[in-house]
Structure formats: C-alpha cells, structure tokens
Computed example of a mutant assay.
Amino acid sequence: MVVYTVGTFDLLHVGHLALLEYCGTLGNVVAVGVASDSVVNSYKPNVPVIPLDQRTEMLQALRCVDIVRPYHELDYVSGCKALDVDIFVVGEDWGKNPHNIAVETYLKSQGKKIIQVLYSPRTSSTNIKQKTIAQAHSKNYMQQSVA
C-alpha cells in the first residue's frame, strides 16, 4: 500500500518525523510530496527558508521515506494518480479549498482513504522561525543596549 502525504517540510523537525513514521505504519511505501517555493507562496506570506532541492534531499535521506516528489502546482490529484496512492494523509488544517475537494472527490471515486492527523504539539516550523526571530531581535537589542 502506498501512503502519500504532502507539505512544505521547511526546517525539518521532530513533528515531521512523527508524521512520516506514522505514515509508515499505514502501508509499505511512504511517498512525500514537497511543495515548491511558488506553491508555498500561493498560500503563505513567505517562501520557505530551506530551498526545495535541499528539502527534497533531506527527506530522501530519511529511512522512513521511500519516494519524494516535489510538486509545482497546488494540485494533489496528479500526485495521487502518478503514485497510485492508497491512503492520503493530511494535517489538521485541511480545509475545503478547491484543490482539497478535488483530491477528496478523486480518492473517494477510487475507493481510497484520506486520514487526517493532528500536528505534533512538540514543535512546528512556524514556532522555530518565530523563536529564531525573537532570539535575533533580543540579541540585537542587547547589543544596542551595551553600545
């Protein structure tokens, strides 16, 4: 069984690992779709910190990942078709956007499953970025105060 999940996978962290390892419990092939910078920028204000080729390389190095497939359009149906996906794993923020509804409709028509998971409470790329920015501002403030 092919299990497919998608995401940005910027600043790879333990939450990502937990998701990918969970996917491995659902089937024997874990395929990961990695959003290109332009795809991410279509729904988030900033592009990823780590370039797509490096995010792809990091995911390929993980033993819990079998296939890494970058995607350059906000369309999950093509990935599901190309990989002959049995289970599509999505995050808790899965919404009713047209691209989400399209893949749900496709998978249901094929008798395939969508499983929604909660994000890891341990960390997130957004939290890592916010903490990094806060620390940088704090350091700059302290340097200016000393001067």
Score class of each variant (00 low, 15 high):
Thr123Met: 11
Val32Lys: 02
Ser145Gln: 14
Asp10Trp: 12
Thr56Asp: 05
Ile67Asp: 02
Val29Trp: 02
Asp75Lys: 15
Gln54Pro: 00
Ile101Arg: 12
Trp94Asp: 13
Arg63Ser: 12
Val103Ala: 00
Ala18Val: 05
Met142Thr: 08
Tyr119His: 12
Gln116Met: 13
Met1Cys: 03
Val32Trp: 01
Leu118Asn: 15
His72Ile: 01
Leu26Arg: 05
Val90Cys: 13
Asp37Glu: 10
Val29Pro: 03
Phe88Leu: 12
Asn140Tyr: 06
Ser42Ala: 14
Ile101Tyr: 07
Gln143Asp: 01
Cys23Gln: 09
Gly111Met: 09
Gly95Glu: 01
Gly15Glu: 08
Met142Phe: 12
His72Phe: 15
Thr25Asp: 01
Pro51Ala: 06
Val3Ala: 04
Thr56Tyr: 07
Ser124Met: 14
Phe88Ile: 00
Ile87Gly: 03
Arg122Val: 13
Trp94Pro: 10
Val103Met: 01
His16Glu: 06
Asn127Glu: 14
Gln130Val: 12
Asp37Phe: 00
Leu52Pro: 06
Gln60Met: 11
Gly24Glu: 00
Ser38Ile: 05
Leu52Ser: 06
Gln143Gly: 03
Cys80Met: 08
Lys81Phe: 09
Asp53Thr: 05
Val34Phe: 10
Pro70Gln: 05
Asp37Val: 00
Leu19Ser: 02
Tyr76Met: 14
Asp10Leu: 08
Asn41Arg: 15
Met142Lys: 15
Leu19Tyr: 01
Thr123Pro: 06
Asn127Lys: 14
Ser78Tyr: 04
Ser138Glu: 14
Tyr4Glu: 03
Asp53Ala: 05
Leu59Ser: 14
Tyr141Asn: 11
Phe9Ala: 09
Pro51Cys: 07
Lys139His: 12
Lys112Asp: 11
Val6Pro: 01
Lys131Glu: 11
Leu52His: 08
Tyr71Lys: 11
Val103Cys: 04
Ala136Cys: 11
His99Asp: 12
Leu62Ala: 04
Asp84Ser: 09
Gly27Trp: 02
Leu52Val: 12
Ile67Ala: 03
Val14Leu: 15
Gly91Gln: 04
His99Tyr: 11
Lys113Ala: 11
Leu11Cys: 08
Ile133Asn: 07
Val68Gly: 06
Ala31Phe: 07
His16Ser: 05
Gly24Leu: 02
Ala102His: 10
Gln54Cys: 02
Ala147Asn: 15
Tyr76Cys: 04
Met142His: 14
Glu21Arg: 15
Gly95Val: 03
Trp94Glu: 09
Val47Ala: 13
Ile115Ala: 05
Leu11Asp: 07
His13Pro: 09
Val6Ala: 10
Asp66Thr: 02
Thr126Asn: 15
Lys96Gly: 00
Ala35Glu: 01
Ser42Met: 07
Val39Phe: 03
Tyr22Ala: 01
Leu83Cys: 10
Ser42Asn: 11
Cys80Ile: 08
Gly7Asn: 09
Ser78Trp: 04
Glu73Thr: 13
Pro48Asp: 11
Ser120Ile: 00
Lys113Leu: 09
Val30Trp: 01
Arg69Met: 08
Gly15Asp: 02
Asp10Met: 10
Ala82His: 11
His72Thr: 15
Glu57Phe: 09
Arg55Asp: 05
Leu62Trp: 10
His99Cys: 06
Gly91Thr: 04
Thr123Tyr: 12
Met142Tyr: 12
Asn28Ser: 15
His137Gly: 00
Leu59Ala: 15
Cys64Phe: 07
Val117Gly: 06
Ile50Thr: 13
Leu26Glu: 01
Gly111Ile: 07
Ile50Gln: 04
Val68Glu: 02
Pro121Thr: 13
His137Cys: 00
Val3Asp: 00
